[in-house]
Design a protein around this nucleic acid. Structure first.
Length: 204
DNA sequence: TAGGCCATCTGGTCCT
DNA sequence: AGGACCAGATGGCCTA
């Protein structure tokens, strides 16, 4: 594993520790950022954002408010309402800070769970360079190829190498084994999906 | 030093 | 309404 030294970056957490939340604590930030509606906010922001940007990322809010997401996620991804970001008006900043911190923590936990799942997947697929940790994209790609290979082997076994009745029995045994494994892992949703898939394949 | 990979923050959107 | 999900932005670490 690459020792990337992923310690918590205090500079990336501007107000999770003692330091205040500069962007949100700013009294003027309680106002809706309407400038970007005219599409000229970038010129207006570039004028002063750099000079007024303190260390610790407080200027990130202003960068975000330029509406960069409009083209990608905000506009296309969810078909949302234009991707314009506005700050909530009126809510006390301390309450918003608490909500934001809680939200950040949940997001961290969610990403940790996702990374745990990636790690489990890494350990489930064979790969050559065992001394080097697979990246996420490598993990997904190898897993896809591995599944494809196993599928090919299984189909070859059940379809070609065995007589008809025996092939079906082998397929049923495989599915049963897989289903048992999933149940042990507590993957109820996947089990249901598998059952559904199995019954569908039996019917067709 | 540039580029890849990653963790984290953040706000919008969806879902329950 | 609140949490989950998503994706953009950002900066740090590491390697070639």
């Amino acid at each position: 594993m690459k020792s990337k030294g992923k310690a918590v970056k205090s500079s990336m957490r501007p107000w999770s520790d003692a330091s205040p939340a500069p962007a949100l604590e700013d009294p003027e930030d309680t106002e809706v950022e309407e400038e970007e509606e005219a599409g000229t906010s970038s010129e207006q922001e570039e004028g002063d954002s750099e000079a007024s940007a303190p260390a610790g990322g407080s200027w990130r809010g202003s960068l975000r408010s330029k509406g960069r997401r409009n083209g990608a996620a905000g506009g296309e991804g969810r078909g949302g309402g234009g991707g314009r970001r506005r700050r909530q008006r009126g809510a006390p900043s301390t309450e918003r800070n608490v909500r934001r911190l809680e939200s950040n923590e949940r997001e961290r936990q969610r990403m940790h769970k996702l990374n745990n799942a990636f790690q489990a997947l890494r350990e489930s697929i064979p790969h050559i360079k065992t001394e080097k940790k697979l990246s996420k994209i490598e993990t997904l790609t190898l897993a896809k190829n591995y599944i494809k290979s196993l599928t090919t082997i299984i189909l070859g076994m059940t379809g070609a190498c065995l007589p008809d009745g025996q092939a079906q029995a082998e397929e049923a045994k495989l599915l049963q084994c897989y289903q048992k494994h999933l149940e042990e892992e507590g993957e109820e949703g996947l089990t249901q999906f598998l059952t559904h898939t199995h019954s569908f394949s039996q019917g067709s």
